[in-house]
Design a protein around this nucleic acid. Structure first.
Lengths: 120, 120
DNA sequence: AAATAATACCTCAATTATTGAGGTATTTGT
DNA sequence: ACAAATACCTCAATAATTGAGGTATTATTT
């Protein structure tokens, strides 16, 4: 039931890492599956982090020293709990600021002619 | 002096077409160079549509029936004025709506804990 | 007058994040 | 017993963007 990709794929690009950074900063430590569930939940299914993007991204961020993880055994299954390193905390700040600024800029270009937005 | 790429490249992805659609809808007809200048101007240099992305994008949109163009000679130089087709007008609406919704969703995920934003 | 910057278009190999489809294995619910 | 959910993984293929290449005309500066 891979039905719910609401946004054209291009739009999602560049947002995955920022989302991961934000959620980890907010919740301290999370594992991959948990991250994807959380995003689905918070966006009412509108954004779906796919395994094929999420896990490689987590590996890359780890390799780059942005994340660390510890493995926790739940019965016979192993969860990898990721958390931000101190470098990761910095990165998170930078990336969020950038995203904020970017959205503001895009909005200015894209939604400029507000023509007195209708009072609702 | 290719200095001013303010945003990490990934962020820009998926925004180029929407920007072009919006500007053409707003100004009726524009040529490539004009588009890139306009964006630079409106974003105070923060967003720079590069030749290598812009022209191929214009060609693709034309091929897909979203744009048409007419060539206008200015002295010995030729400008290609692009404008939206009716299909392009529809596309523009759809893409802008999508962008609007997307930004709202992302903001919800990324900037959720506003923790009573400091009065400035 | 010559040199430089700005205008105006183009192509294409290389990059790179994401997809999509593949997979293994355990646990929970019916 | 079987399906669905949990939890992780890999990797070839896709496709937008980059970056560096290019041609040629017009305007501006020295």
């Amino acid at each position: 039931m891979y039905c719910c990709i609401m946004y054209s794929k291009e739009l999602l690009k560049g947002t995955l890492e920022v989302i991961v950074l934000k959620l980890l900063s907010e919740h301290g430590k999370m594992y991959g599956y948990e991250l994807s569930q959380k995003v689905k939940e918070e966006t009412e299914g509108k954004i779906h982090l796919k395994d094929g993007s999420l896990y490689p991204a987590l590996h890359k961020l780890t390799k780059d020293g942005i994340l660390t993880f510890e493995e926790v055994s739940i019965g016979k299954r192993v969860r990898k709990y990721y958390k931000l390193t101190s470098k990761g905390e910095e990165q998170k700040e930078t990336r969020l600021d950038e995203m904020r600024d970017f959205i503001k800029t895009i909005e200015k270009v894209i939604f400029s002619d507000l023509k007195t937005s209708p009072a609702i």
